[in-house]
Amino acid sequence: MQIKVSKEYLTELLSRQERVDQRGFFDYRSISIKTNTIPNAEGSASVYIGNTYVLAGVKLDVGTPMPDKPDEGVLVTSAELLPLASVEYEEGPPSPEAVEFARVVDRGIRAAEVIDTESLFIEENKVWNVYLDIYVLNYDGNLFDAGTLASVAALLTTRMPRLEGEQVIRTGDLPRLKTKGIVASTTFAKIGNAILLDPTGLEESFMNARLTIATDDEYIHAMQKGLAGYFTRQEIEKLIDTSFEKSKMLRSLISKAVSGD
C-alpha cells in the first residue's frame, strides 16, 4: 500500500528541501537489477527502484524488415501497466500513458543503438524481429527509468536464437544478441517549482510536469517532457547536466548486473 499525504504537506516539505522519504532532491531510491529472471525468454531482467517493480522480457522471431531498412532487424517495444500493479490500473487496450512509456523507452534504446540491428539480417526479406515487452508489476513512480534499466539489461543478456531450416532453435549453446550502445534514462518531476529526480508514486500524483532524459557518456539520446506543466530552458539545461552524472551511475549498475549473468 502506498502512503498518502496532502499536497499541502508535500509542498511544505519541499519548500524545506525535504522529501517524504528523506531523500535528497537528486537522489535515486535503492535500485536492484537482476537478469535472466525468466529463463524461457531469450532475455529478461527484473528491476526494482524502491517499490517500483518492472520486468522486461525479450523474444526473437523471424519476420520481415521495415521497407525503409531492408537489411536490418526490427525492434518492437510494448509496455503493459498490469492491473495487479496498482489500484489505478485497469484492464483494456494500452492507455495513452502506456503507449508513451513504451515509445520513450524505445526511443532511447534505438537512438543509443543498443541493438546492432544489422546483425539481425538473415536473407533478403527475412530478418529477426526483437520483441521487447515491459511489464509493470508494482507501480510506485518513475516507470520510465525502471523500464529503460530493465530493457537494456534484458537486451544485453539476450540469447541469439539460431535457424535450422525453418526451425528456430532457442536453447542450448547460443551466442548473445549483438549489442553496441548502453543507455540509461533519468526522470525528473516538477511539483510547484521544486524539481525531483526519481519521483515516487506519491510524488508523481502531485507533479505538474515530467522530464525524461536518456544519455550515455557523450550524448543525449532521447528526451520527453510530459504533462500539463512546463520547464524553462534554464531548468532543462541544468537537468541535462544532472542526467549525464546520474546516467553514469545507472549504467554501471547495468554493467554489474549483466556481467554476473
Binding site: 526511443r107 532511447g108 534505438r110 537512438a111 543509443a112 522530464l211 557523450e218 550524448y219 543525449i220 539520446h221 532521447a222 528526451m223 520527453q224 517532457k225 512546463y230 520547464f231 524553462t232 530552458r233 532543462i236 539545461e237 541535462i240 547536466d241 549525464f244
Partner: peptide
C-alpha cells in the same frame, strides 16, 4: 511566458549542440 511545453528528442546530440 517563456515555457517549454513540449519537448521530445531522439538521436544523438551533445549538451552544447542542444
Amino acid at each position: 511566458l517563456d515555457r517549454v511545453l513540449l519537448l521530445q528528442m531522439d538521436g544523438k546530440m551533445t549538451k552544447e549542440e542542444f
